[in-house]
Design a protein around this nucleic acid. Structure first.
Lengths: 193, 193
DNA sequence: TCTATCATGTAAAGGGTTACATGATTCT
DNA sequence: AGAATCATGTAACCCTTTACATGATAGA
């Protein structure tokens, strides 16, 4: 029962939560949208879908639309929704930021639709907090090793630092966007009433 | 003979090229420097070292320094150097940029010391070119889908776009830094003579 | 009829993660 | 004596990659 879900698995859960679809539709999604960088190979997706189904996170039903080959449309079960929610709500830790932002950004992309803007705001705040703690350590490392580093190594590190700095700024902007969106919704509600 | 080298393998080759060391030293390197995000677990590094050794890319020799436990110090063989060089000189393709910058930045970090600044400059130029081709497609996608995207999805995409834009700027700055460094070297040479 | 697209799968191989295991030395 | 650090490894499991395979329908 303790079976884990891979990052690809969560990506599939998130997409299927937005709208049920076939394995083929999911592959097209990966191939055509810049949502994240996942392989669109059948050898990754179909086994992943079967794992999720075996674990009870999704359920597929055959939909033979107009005499086409059998096509399975998958959707989340209550259990799958709970699993997705648990992942999205998981407190953000330092390692999540250090180990690469791919997973963090994927979580963020799904959060709003899946569990609402309050969770998105929380994630943004957590991200800003972790970045504030982490980025200075990079600056310190650079300051202390700058002289001993080859030029390309130093520049590569500076690139990493810059991208984290930029992400900090993005997080701040995104929080502003969320507040603006909340205010707008509030106004609309008042106008309608 | 067509055996492949994983990204971790190239990272090990690059580090060992800078200075020969033991598996333990490499682990410390991964754990303590922000060079890239690799696992410092023995279960990844020792098997990878053995693979590289089996393929003839590195050679380890036992150095029992002051009665410690046997410690193997690895260094590149000529073949390993050739393999590293081939990887570093490989022309940068669109996919390399789309699939994540981790590998590109790792290559860049090693290039200067391994094969000289001219190759670093070439890599930077290739990177700038690919980014110039790729980033507009992201902007186009955003423009066309903006209205239909949930707020968090849109913001996540914007974050990706911003980070690519920033990387473009970094590449331009890095080129300037290389030219400055080349000029400085030139001056020093003239002064000495 | 042939090609592109829709649609789903399997098999083998390689490699990373996690957990476990061992043993020596140095410092407290 | 015990803890921390140096130092190297193994085994099971899972996932991804790559390559191969099949079959139907729609349009040129």
């Amino acid at each position: 029962m303790k079976e884990r879900v891979s990052l690809l698995g969560y990506a599939l859960l998130g997409l299927l939560n937005q709208r049920p679809g076939s394995g083929y539709a999911l592959r097209k999604m990966f191939a055509s949208t810049p949502i994240g960088t996942f392989s669109d190979s059948p050898g990754a997706i179909y086994p992943a879908l079967r794992r999720l189904e075996r674990q009870g996170h999704i359920r597929g039903r055959v939909a033979q639309s107009a005499g086409l080959r059998r096509k399975q449309v998958f959707q989340l079960t209550p259990r799958g929704k709970a699993t997705l929610r648990e992942w999205l709500e998981r407190p953000l830790k330092r390692e999540d930021v250090v180990a690469g932002l791919k997973e963090v950004m994927l979580r963020f992309a799904f959060t709003d639709e899946a569990i609402g803007p309050a969770a998105s705001v929380r994630l943004l705040r957590d991200l800003a907090r972790e970045l504030e703690a982490y980025v200075p350590t990079l600056h310190t490392y650079l300051r202390e090793h700058r002289a001993a580093m080859p030029l390309s190594g130093r520049l590569a590190l500076e690139s990493g630092i810059r991208s984290y700095d930029d992400l900090s700024r993005w997080a701040a902007d995104a929080l502003v966007a969320y507040h603006a969106s909340a205010r707008k919704k509030g106004r609309e509600r008042r106008v309608r009433s």
